[in-house]
Amino acid sequence: MRKLIIRYKFFLIMIIFTLIIFMINHDIGINVLNTAFSSLLQMLTVVPPIMIMLGLMDVWIPREKFMKHMGESSGISGILITILIASIAAGPMYAAFPFIPVLMRKGVKFSNILLFMNAWCVIKISTLLFEISGIGITFTFWRFVIDLPGVIIISLITEKMMKKDEIDNLYALAENL
């Protein structure tokens, strides 16, 4: 029981905090519950298809293919493939997180994993189209021109700054998931 409480302490603290808000101001409490429920529904529509896709990717695409095209010796082609995959992805940022352990188990280079996460956030096609409609093509173009090399450079620098044993530990953790 104690382990369960420790594991879900943040969730339990948020429930207590929500109850306190609800007792202090009923309207704000209702808004908090509506927001939480809306977020839960959104996650339930996004996460199951992602998990199915991950399962299929894990089974259908051999480790050797990932290592060849996105692994340690992939070079510029690995960077381009990573950007392509991340830019055509759909869904919010939290949908990208389940991909990370799968990519690690498949032998994808660490900088390409970092690039995948950054590109998912910043240069996804759906985001660019939304941005063009809201802010305009000029701003979106220049943001893209700055962000594209930026995400590549940040990924490469971050990998270089990390110690090899730290990266190896992350890969070992991914194997146990």
Rank of each mutant, 00 (worst) to 15 (best):
A89F: 06
N112C: 08
T82M: 13
K65M: 12
K65N: 03
M93D: 13
A36D: 05
I113D: 07
T140H: 02
P101M: 00
I100E: 08
T140Q: 07
K9H: 09
I28G: 09
K163E: 12
I153Y: 08
F141V: 15
V145T: 03
N118G: 14
K9L: 13
M162I: 05
P92H: 04
A89P: 01
E159G: 03
L129V: 08
S133E: 15
F17A: 08
L41A: 10
E166W: 05
I154D: 02
M23S: 15
F11G: 11
G29K: 01
A86H: 02
L128A: 14
S133W: 06
F130K: 02
N118T: 08
K106W: 05
K124S: 01
P98L: 10
I125R: 10
N169K: 11
I152F: 07
R143Q: 08
G150R: 02
I132A: 02
S133Y: 04
L173K: 13
L56N: 00
I154M: 09
A96T: 14
N118V: 02
L128M: 10
A86C: 05
G71W: 01
K124H: 03
L40M: 14
S87K: 01
M117A: 13
I123Q: 00
I28P: 05
Q42Y: 05
M23E: 07
I154W: 03
S133M: 14
G75A: 09
